[in-house]
Design a protein around this nucleic acid. Structure first.
Length: 376
RNA sequence: GUGCGAUUAGUUCAGUUGGUAGAGCACCAGAUUGUGGUUCUGGGUGUCGUGGGUUCGAGCCCCACAUCGCACC
């Protein structure tokens, strides 16, 4: 697997690159739709590829390990075959889910013990078995097991957490080197930088993680409760240290504005549940701001969902109809909104690439950001 | 026709010895950042069926009427 830097914006740190995998190319900056359990909720792969133009999607180790489980995934020949997706897949380690979903969990140097949110069964994730699990899933990009430190953690906790994450990373990397892909195509793994909102910890975490980075590296533990300015500050600090030839993945971010701000600061890859989760709750993102489609004001607005939208749903359905579907609890509402939001997110990164190549990214970004934050 | 019961928010229903009304759902808004199609937060939107009466004061007590339900002729 290879990452190549192609263009740099003259007026900012924004950049364009190409990530080449055995399942095809990924042009950066890129947004990766989240398909936690082997499905980008409510969206057909055909639309994901042809309408939304997704180049890579996510899967989640925690969820897939619990269900369908490793036996089925192995029998299926890996996640790509199981879900019929022939483009690249990145899997999160599941560390985040252990903390956000599992009620009962215990952190030890060995790993993290937790109970399934599905049936209460007891499990342990260690760096070693997490590598093995992601080998079975067969993702193109595997994420290291880490502890996602809360955004409001004090320095003492954040440092302790970082030390744990670093120890896990060393073991994860060792296991990765000792093992081989199971399905005949290359896998790589991204280490994750933690350190909460403390510059010294972030710097230390970056230097350490870089020792284990082959093609890319991730910035974790952001957009988890800290002020947004701190998030941007941390991105700047770590991107100052990361060499230009490494792909930089900002985990779990974010709003359209967050993404543009991060691209401007040199981030290449993003994932976030926001376009799909908020879609299911009636929220649409557009270049002119966001709309809550459940609002009564759309009741008799028969204009297209988004006149500037790139998806077929934007022209095919009216706002009044989409509101009706939401109010009626129809599943088409979630499907149409998810289709729109993902197409919009992919359009954001597509236009970003275009403007970075042209060399006017910073100027363009400054012109679109004020409108993106509006409410319609 | 007679008897009994019911009538309170959009809806299903609470409402104490009489002190001008509440809950669930719905509805109206807001939140959601490495996804449990979730979850959370805020908002009461009312001629208490109608008209009289008793009372300082009636959703509550009394009378008549209306409507609905049940039972009996």
């Amino acid at each position: 697997m290879k990452f190549t830097l192609l263009h740099k914006d003259p007026a900012s740190r924004a950049r364009c690159g190409l990530l080449e995998t055995d399942h095809g190319p990924v042009r950066t900056p890129i947004f990766m739709p989240v398909g936690t359990v082997g499905s980008v909720k409510g969206v057909f792969h055909r639309d994901l590829k042809e309408d939304i133009k997704a180049e890579i999607i996510l899967g989640n180790t925690y969820h897939l390990y619990l269900r369908p489980g490793l036996g089925i995934l192995r029998q299926a020949g890996g996640l790509h075959k199981f879900e019929s997706w022939d483009r690249p897949i990145l899997t999160d380690s599941g560390g985040f889910q252990v903390f956000s979903l599992s009620g009962i969990r215990k952190l030890t140097p060995e790993g993290v013990k937790f109970q399934s949110h599905i049936d209460g069964s007891r499990h342990i994730f260690t760096p070693e078995n997490n590598v093995d699990t992601q080998r079975v899933i067969g993702s193109d990009i595997m994420m290291a097991l880490d502890e996602c430190c809360p955004g409001d953690a004090d320095y003492r906790y954040a440092e302790k957490s970082l030390v744990l994450t670093q120890g896990w990373l060393e073991r994860y990397a060792a296991r990765f080197r000792e093992t081989e892909p199971l399905y005949g195509y290359e896998q790589t793994f991204f280490p994750i930088i933690q350190g909460c909102i403390y510059p010294e910890l972030r710097k230390r975490a970056t230097e350490h993680a870089l020792q284990f980075s082959e093609v890319g590296i991730a910035i974790g533990g952001l957009a988890v409760g800290e002020p947004v300015d701190k998030m941007y500050e941390m991105i700047e600090i770590v991107n100052d240290i990361i060499p230009e030839d490494k792909a930089r993945y900002l985990m779990g971010v974010g709003t359209p504005v967050n993404i543009l701000e991060a691209i401007e600061r040199g981030v290449d890859m993003f994932d976030c549940v926001m376009p799909t989760r908020n879609a299911r709750n009636g929220m649409l993102f557009t270049w002119n701001g966001c709309m809550n489609m459940r609002n009564a004001k759309w009741e008799d607005d028969f204009s297209p969902i988004d006149p500037e939208g790139t998806s077929f749903v934007d022209r095919e359905y009216s706002r009044a109809y989409l509101r009706h579907l939401f109010v009626s609890g129809e599943m088409m509402a979630a499907m149409i909104a998810s289709e729109h939001n993902l197409a919009f997110y992919l359009e954001i990164v597509r236009r970003s690439r275009e403007h970075i190549e042209k060399g006017d990214f910073a100027e363009w970004k400054a012109s679109v950001v004020p409108k993106l934050g509006q409410r319609l």
